[in-house]
Amino acid sequence: MDFRLFCTLALNGIAMGVVYAMLAMGLILLIRAVGVMNFAQGDLLMFGAYVTSSLILDFELPLYLMIPVSFICFVVIGLVFMFTIYWPLRKASYPAATIIATMGASIILKELATLIWGALPRSLPPIITDANGKPGILYIGGIPLQWQYVLTIIVGAILIFLIHMLFEKLYVGKMMQAACQDSYAANLMGVPAIATISATYIIVVCLASVGGFMIAPIYMVRNTLGTLQLRAFAGVVIGGFGNIKGAIIGSLIVGLVEVFSTVFLSGYKDVTVFMLIILFLLIRPQGLFGGKIADKA
């Protein structure tokens, strides 16, 4: 394979992997915090892409205004999501009920987006363009790399790193996790579970939405972006459930496998990605980095 093509593909793969990793990280934060598998994760990404692109295209906000305004939107979305899809269901007697509710949320987000912004895909210009308005290209050693992919990797990596630090290293984050897992203890410590869970939901929405914003110029803004979540699921499985580091690496693997298999197998790229999951589940169900699966005897 041509080395330049290889580099371009690798960059695309990593960029997509980073976006999947943002979704996957959110999935794991939610599983850890409230034990719910979110089947609307991809639709949050889609909705975030619509919100941000609408602020730019319809309200014509410059980037420095768009960022705080969209953050406010994400907070609202996160709170609404948590108070409708999770909070009333936290004591549901049928465990599948919470999962089905997120499927309902997936439908709602998709239809809301269609109602508000129409069914046609919208195109958002890349953040960096050249003089002709074409996507900006970064040349490294003569190899052309699209700026949008590079930026996606940078922004995604920074965000993932910060949130990882928050939850794994900082006292506040550890408290948050503890609070989510044991609301009684948390209330004793003076941290109401509702606050920490809300914060988790807001972070999850931000992660997904920023991912949506970054890939909007690549994929166009459309209501089918939600299906990207299946690849985040794949990343979570490969990395091992509940393990953030594993999920990130798993997502990167998914991104790369997907991009390279597109070249060789076009229509069957899903086959490679998802056969990979099935193989992983069968051979190493604990994933790459998961510990031994807890015995519930």
Partner: peptide
């Protein structure tokens, strides 16, 4: 026999993967 070696959420994920694989074949 293969997929039910997994339990709970793992099994659910494997069935999602199965749907994706079969859909890709049906479609292509």
């Amino acid at each position: 026999l293969l997929l039910l070696k997994l339990s709970g959420t793992y099994f659910t994920f494997s069935t999602i993967a199965l749907v994706q694989v079969t859909y890709a074949f049906y479609n292509n």
